[in-house]
Amino acid sequence: MTDAEGGPVRAASESLNPAAMRKQYRREGLDASALAAEPMEQFAHWFAEAARDGLYEPNAMIVSTAGADGAPDSRTVLLKQYDRRGFVFYTNYASQKAIDLDANPQVALLFPWHPLARQVRVTGTAAQVPREETAAYFRTRPHGSQIGAWASDQSAVVPGRATLDRAYADLAARHPEGEEVPVPPHWGGYRVTPRTVEFWQGRENRLHDRLRYVRSGDGEGWRVERLAP
């Protein structure tokens, strides 16, 4: 193995060599004839299977953005709602992801369901959800998470962990358990309206099944295309 500059990198054992790490995917394949008519319905089927199979946080998804400078960025967030309109997640509107989305609403999502040898890949456009929708979701959050939304100036540089802990403790004292916590004006949801949704199923010999829904030109329907792995 070599490092980024071509020098040798010593590993504890050969099993730590990523080039030697291989898994043979042997799950049942994916055929277009078995897909639902719309991608969100197909997503619901796969999401339910991921949850039934006990995947840890099956609603975890990678959100990739590109800011005004065109530089890409990715992070993992939690899906909190989905329906025919798209996928919803929540964040601080002053966070880096929100700054990126304000400059460029084009976004990509990835659900990496590795134990099932599956991925769902989404491209689309993100827009803030209405405030009443944000407020309704905020009320369902645990009290600690509500306090945390106030305590963290997400993506800002902080001197240390103690700064966060003090901010949380101060807010928790002002809004004790059982007392309603106001919805932060700087916090809310984004809905990603999909343009494409790809369902990726791992197959033997890296000949994976990749079926992608593409929104029609009039925006009213979908076509399905198979991609080479």
Score class of each variant (00 low, 15 high):
F43P: 09
N59Y: 09
E41P: 03
G54F: 00
G67E: 12
N59H: 15
A44N: 08
R75P: 00
S64G: 15
G54E: 09
I62G: 13
A60L: 11
D73Q: 10
E49F: 02
G67D: 14
M61T: 06
G70V: 10
Q42G: 05
A48F: 03
D73R: 15
A44Y: 00
F43I: 11
F47P: 00
V63D: 04
L79Y: 01
S74I: 01
A44R: 14
G67M: 10
A44H: 06
E49H: 06
A44S: 13
L55F: 01
L55G: 04
A50H: 05
L79M: 13
A48G: 06
G67K: 07
D53Q: 15
D53C: 12
M40K: 00
M40D: 03
T65G: 12
L78Q: 02
S64E: 03
D73L: 04
P72F: 08
A51R: 15
G54A: 05
P39I: 09
G67Y: 07
A51E: 15
S74F: 03
G54W: 02
T65H: 01
A66H: 05
P72T: 08
W46C: 07
E57F: 02
F47I: 05
M40Q: 08
W46P: 11
V63A: 09
Y56N: 07
M61P: 02
E49Y: 00
V77A: 02
V77W: 02
Y56L: 05
P58Q: 08
A71N: 03
E57Y: 04
T65E: 05
H45Q: 14
S64T: 15
G67W: 03
A51K: 14
S64I: 11
T76K: 03
L78V: 07
E49D: 14
A60E: 06
R75T: 04
G67A: 06
D73T: 08
T65A: 11
A48V: 10
A50Y: 02
M61F: 05
R52T: 13
A68V: 04
A71M: 12
P58V: 13
P72N: 05
S74T: 13
A48C: 00
T65F: 02
R75G: 03
D53W: 00
L55Y: 05
G54T: 12
